[in-house]
Design a protein around this nucleic acid. Structure first.
Length: 513
RNA sequence: GGCCGGUUCGUCUAUCGGCUAGGACAGCCCCCUUUCACGGGGCAAAGACGGGUUCGAUUCCCGUACCGGCUACCA
């Protein structure tokens, strides 16, 4: 017998899995794992009645990259399959009809035009958005206003119809939210939501209740934007006779735009230049690809860590957490109630911290493919690990490793002569010619010995080593960056070092005294 | 408009009635480093407002303001 804790995530496939979505998964996952329960992913693979190609694979791949593997999903299987909403379609109608039988729902035959007309007709300055509610339904074409024979006839004729919940008039519905405590709603204020659409697909309202019941879900985390529809869901649990099995709800605070206010959207990422999706997402309609955190150069550990601390904290000063530490220390009580603005600078800081912390042996699997992409192959992993350790503290994104390590493998395409020129003179030119000669005779090719011979030579020429170090660096790497010059020379080797110095000298003037 | 939720440095947040309001990111300064970083030290920066309750409110209660969410046969 498995644990009674079952937590589910039902991602919306409307366009990539964004920050808010992944954070919802994360909190679902952390809670489930902490309680020793199961984490279930049910895929909503339709959007506006159309199947979203690739949404399912995309979502599962994203979760896999994040390290948040579900216990049950379309990929893993499980006792309550299918987990794909389009395959569960036949299930929902019978529950919707059962509600009609009990008098908690009704058929509505209104055309879209009729609905639009209603909204026009009943709209007033005080009430600009009239709802299909207890009073308005009296004026509409539905099984509450039509006779039984008329309804039977319409159904027999196959007239398109939906099934709506019949909201009671004077009840108060309580939602016991794990984060916010008791929230009450006056049912008078809630409209008769559509439960089953004309095409037979359930709306989210019906699907979430039926699926959570059938899949025996015990706890449900979702975004705060769902709070207003909580009374509909709670009433459905009651009307279907499942009140005792209703899951505990937790409505998570929203992730907000970094500037201004409002929910973070894909547009904000495009506008401000940062990802909002976990991984690259290609819109099946427009074929347009939006870059993800993964492709941008984020480590999954950092991505998860950053997300966990957006709206939650451990109560200590600790900021860097592994997934296991998060599972151990997570607590719903410490989830913040207010929305949090996303800060890309802080997100990068988390990544930088994780790059500094991870051993080269771990980083190499992320770095190797990046180098191969620019045509550097056949790299010995021993050497690459050495290089990674040398440069990792200068890399904020994984993609930074390309610039920071490319020069170890090939001579710089161009060198920053402009930074050498202002202080370049005959003495320095001669020094480097001598340095080449001296290094050719060097038998111990290591950083310390190279440093030593360099120092001696500069002293002998009465030059300040500091004035020579920068030119040497630029000759070897092309610019003013990178680890210690002699470490670099040691790694690239005698032949390459000398070749690069000679190549640079040929590009520099040869002044005479 | 209505309903629901929220409100501590620029940003993420700590504080479960005692506060000289703590930490982190970003910013600025200094040290280390003859590059770029890392690291170390420092500076600056906050309780929306008004009423209660209390010996004492950032913390509890009420109101106001502001922000957000929802108000679709979208999720």
């Amino acid at each position: 017998m498995s644990s009674s804790i079952r937590v589910r995530f039902a991602p919306s496939p409307t366009g990539g899995l964004h920050l808010g979505g992944v954070r919802t998964v994360l909190f679902n996952y952390l809670f489930a794992k902490q309680q020793g329960g199961s984490f279930i992913v049910r895929i909503e693979d339709t959007d506006q009645n159309r199947l979203v190609e690739g949404a399912e694979a995309y979502i599962l791949d994203t979760l896999s990259w994040c390290g948040l593997e579900p216990d049950e999903s379309t990929r893993k299987g499980g006792p309550f399959a299918p987990y794909r909403q389009s395959e569960r379609k036949p299930l929902y109608r019978k529950y919707a009809e059962a509600l009609i039988e009990k008098g908690y729902a009704y058929y509505a035959f209104d055309t879209p035009e009729a609905l639009e007309k209603m909204r026009e007709q009943f709209s007033t300055p005080q009430n600009p958005a009239p709802q299909y509610n207890h009073s308005i339904r009296q004026h509409m074409k539905n099984s509450l206003t039509l006779s039984a024979t008329e309804v039977a006839q319409l159904l027999a004729d196959g007239v398109p119809h939906v099934i709506r919940i019949k909201m009671p008039e004077n009840e108060t519905v309580h939602c016991d939210d794990m984060i916010r405590g008791d929230i009450s709603f006056d049912t008078q204020m809630v409209d008769d939501k559509v439960l089953l659409k004309a095409d037979g697909m359930p709306t989210y309202h019906l699907a979430v209740v039926v699926d959570d019941y059938l899949m025996q879900i015990s706890h449900a985390f979702r975004g705060e934007e769902w709070l207003p529809s909580a009374p509909v869901h709670i009433l459905l649990w009651k009307y279907l006779g499942w009140e005792q099995q209703m899951p505990r709800w937790a409505h998570l605070p929203l992730i907000l735009k970094p500037d201004g206010n409002g929910k973070l959207s894909k547009r904000d990422g495009d506008r401000l230049g940062f990802p909002v999706f976990a991984m690259n997402w290609t819109d099946p309609k427009t074929k347009e690809t939006t870059v993800g955190f993964k492709e941008k150069g984020f480590l999954p550990q950092a991505f998860i860590n950053m997300l966990a601390l957006l709206g939650w904290n451990s109560g200590t000063d600790q900021e860097i957490f592994t997934l296991n530490e998060l599972v151990e220390q997570f607590s719903i009580q410490r989830i913040h109630k207010g929305g949090a603005k996303f800060d890309y600078e802080k997100a990068k800081w988390f990544n930088h911290e994780w790059i500094k912390r991870l051993p080269a042996a771990e980083l190499i699997k992320h770095v190797l493919p990046l180098l191969e992409e620019i045509g550097i192959s056949n790299i010995s992993s021993n050497l690459l690990e050495k290089i990674i350790d040398l440069v990792k503290e200068r890399c904020t994104l994984l993609t930074d490793f390309v610039v920071q390590s490319e020069f170890f493998f090939r001579a710089p395409a161009s060198i920053d002569t402009a930074s050498i020129l202002p202080k370049w003179n005959e003495a320095k030119n001669l020094f480097f010619i001598e340095l080449v000669r001296s290094w050719q005779l060097q038998n111990q090719w290591n950083a310390d010995d190279l440093h030593h011979s360099f120092q001696e030579l500069s002293a002998a020429n009465d030059l300040k080593p500091g004035e020579l170090m920068l030119p040497l660096r630029i000759m070897l790497v092309g610019g003013k960056f990178g680890p210690g010059v002699f470490d670099i020379a040691a790694i690239i080797g005698k032949e390459a070092s000398i070749k690069r110095i000679e190549a640079a000298l040929s590009q520099l003037p040869h002044p005479h005294p």
